[in-house]
Every structure is written in C-alpha cells, then in structure tokens.
C-alpha cells in the first residue's frame, strides 16, 4: 500500500490520474453534459464540420459527434472494466490458490491457464459472440477469460516468492492458518503487482474493446462506442477527413494514461517489488498487442 501511495506522488502518475479522472467524469455525467441526445438524427445536416452548434460536427445520419463521444465513453470503459474484472477474478484467486492449495490444483490450473494463453483475443471474442449472440457482454466475457492467465501468472509468481519468506514460515510455525497468512502477509505484497497488471490490462482491454467494436462485434447500433465511431467515420473520409481524429485521440490518451499509471506504480514499488513485476511491463502489452494484430 505504501508503494501505491508513493506512486501517486510521481508526476507522470499525477498526470495519468488526472486524465483517467476526467474519463471517469465523462463516463459518469457524459449523458447530462452532452449538448444533444446522442441518438437524435438531424438528417438535414449530415456529415457537417465543426460549428458553434456542433463542436465536433455531425455524423452520417446527422448526430452530434461530441454527444456520441461522451455517451460512448461509458460503454467503452465499462466494457473494458468488465473484462478486466472477470480476468482479475479468474486469475488472481486461482493464482494464489495454486501456491497454497496443493499440487493437484496447481497442476490443473497451470494446464488450463496455458491452454487459455494459446487463444488469440479477437478471434476468440468473435467466436464467442457468434456462439452466444452478438453483444458486448458476451464479447467481454471472452476477453475476460483470456485476460485471466496474465493475472494468474503474475499473482502466482509473486506469491511463490513469498511462500519461502522467513516471516511467512514464522507465521506458519506460530500456527497461523493458511487463510490468515494469505490475507495478512501475502496479499499485501502481491497487491501492487496486481494493481500494475490491472492498469496495463485495462489499457489492453480498452484497445481490444475498441478493435472489436471497430469490427462491429459486441455492440448493437445505434449505441455509440469509441471503436464503432472510428469505424463509421472511416467510410466518410472524403466528407469529413478529420472524423476519426476525436475518437482515436480519446482512445490513445486513455490507453497512454493507463500505461503511464502502471509504469509509475511499478517504479514506486522499486527494489522491494517481487521479481515477477519486472517482466510484466513487456509481457502484458505484448500479449495484448499481439492478440490485436492477429
């Protein structure tokens, strides 16, 4: 926890938190501060440029782009959070359990996670959406399941190092239960690692959500999403050449802020961090960007 407090004091972290705070505010009150109904079509003014009435112009059926971006923030971010939440649940708990719950569970969970790691994000999400119906929850379920191995591996690596730590062994000798050891000694040490992973995974999940909605997976029209808006703007580049800039910028800035925050937390954990935290920085974005490329 001290590491987290330290991290927040770093300048990149402050900046990242400010950006993310703004995104959260947009998510929360985007609907109320939006100048127009994000679904209202004004067919007399389609593909209009920026003006006093429409700061970011209008889209292909005359909807206010600014209002749609604001409304789209909630869907996009909530979807990414949903996937990361599921990944956390399915990754962290089995990760800890694999260290303390005996060899059979360890072996089984390792094989399952290895299997999941072989699946590409986008293709798996498309397959699940085809199977369970084309909805954001279905697609995010798929992404969440595939995020689990990242959390599992990271948590497990951190926890394994602690199993042999002297104070843990001392606790065991004093008769502390396994549950108490995990709760008071292990979890505190694993938490910063999990937070770093969560931030990077959130950034990756946002990209995956944007990619999927760009491809038309997981979102039902006319609901706005960042990726969906990006895709629709591309079809009208002649009429609105600047169209993709706003949704693209929002995606870039949010993802960059999440990554910067993750970096700052990792830096703040410093030498005391478990060895597993180090490769995280490369591993997670790589795994996700590779998935996106596929």
């Amino acid at each position: 926890m001290r590491a987290l407090r330290l991290a927040v004091r770093l300048r990149p972290a402050k900046l990242a938190l400010a950006v993310l705070g703004l995104v959260v505010v947009l998510m929360a009150v985007g609907d109320t501060i939006a100048p127009y109904d994000p679904l209202h079509q004004d067919t007399t003014a389609i593909l209009a440029g920026p003006s006093a009435e429409h700061w970011l112009g209008t889209d292909y059926v005359g909807r206010d782009v600014l209002s749609r971006l604001l409304a789209g923030s909630r869907l996009s971010v909530v979807a990414a959070a949903e996937a990361v939440g599921l990944g956390l649940l399915l990754g962290v708990l089995p990760g800890l359990a694999s260290v303390y719950f005996g060899r059979v569970f360890e072996w089984l969970s390792l094989r399952v996670m290895d299997g999941l790691m072989a699946l590409p994000f986008i293709i798996f999400a498309i397959a699940v959406a085809a199977l369970l119906g084309n909805g954001l929850h279905q697609a995010m379920f798929a992404v969440g399941v595939l995020l689990a191995p990242t959390f599992y591996r990271v948590t497990r690596a951190a926890a394994i190092g602690l199993r042999q730590a002297q104070y843990v062994e001392a606790g065991t000798l004093f008769g502390a239960t396994r549950w108490r050891i995990v709760r008071t000694h292990v979890w505190q040490k694993v938490l910063p690692t999990v937070v770093v992973t969560t931030a990077t995974a959130m950034a990756g999940a946002l990209l995956v959500v944007s990619s999927l909605t760009f491809l038309g997976i997981g979102v039902q029209p006319p609901a706005p999403t960042w990726g969906g808006m990006l895709a629709s703007d591309l079809g009208y580049l002649t009429q609105r050449p600047f169209g993709p800039v706003a949704p693209a910028l929002l995606i870039i800035v949010t993802v960059a802020a999440l990554n910067a925050l993750a970096d700052a937390i990792r830096d703040a954990t410093g030498d005391g961090a478990p060895a597993s935290a180090a490769p995280l920085h490369e591993e997670v974005p790589d795994a996700i960007s590779a998935a996106v490329r596929r």
């Binding site: 292909y60 959406a129 979102v219 029209p221």
Partner: peptide, 28 residues
C-alpha cells in the same frame, strides 16, 4: 452491418409513429 445508416434511419422514422425499434446485428 454495424454502422448501417439505413437501419438507423429506419429506426428513427418508425419511432416517430410509435413503432419502437430495437436494432440487432445479425450473427455473422
């Protein structure tokens, strides 16, 4: 198709006479 202006326009036009349209993208 996602981002089908035709479907989205139809949704608004039908809405105006009281036909509440939910759009659904067909499973690929």
């Amino acid at each position: 198709a996602e981002n089908d202006p035709l479907a989205e326009l139809l949704q608004q036009q039908l809405q105006e006479v009281g036909i509440d349209v939910t759009l659904q993208v067909a499973t690929p």
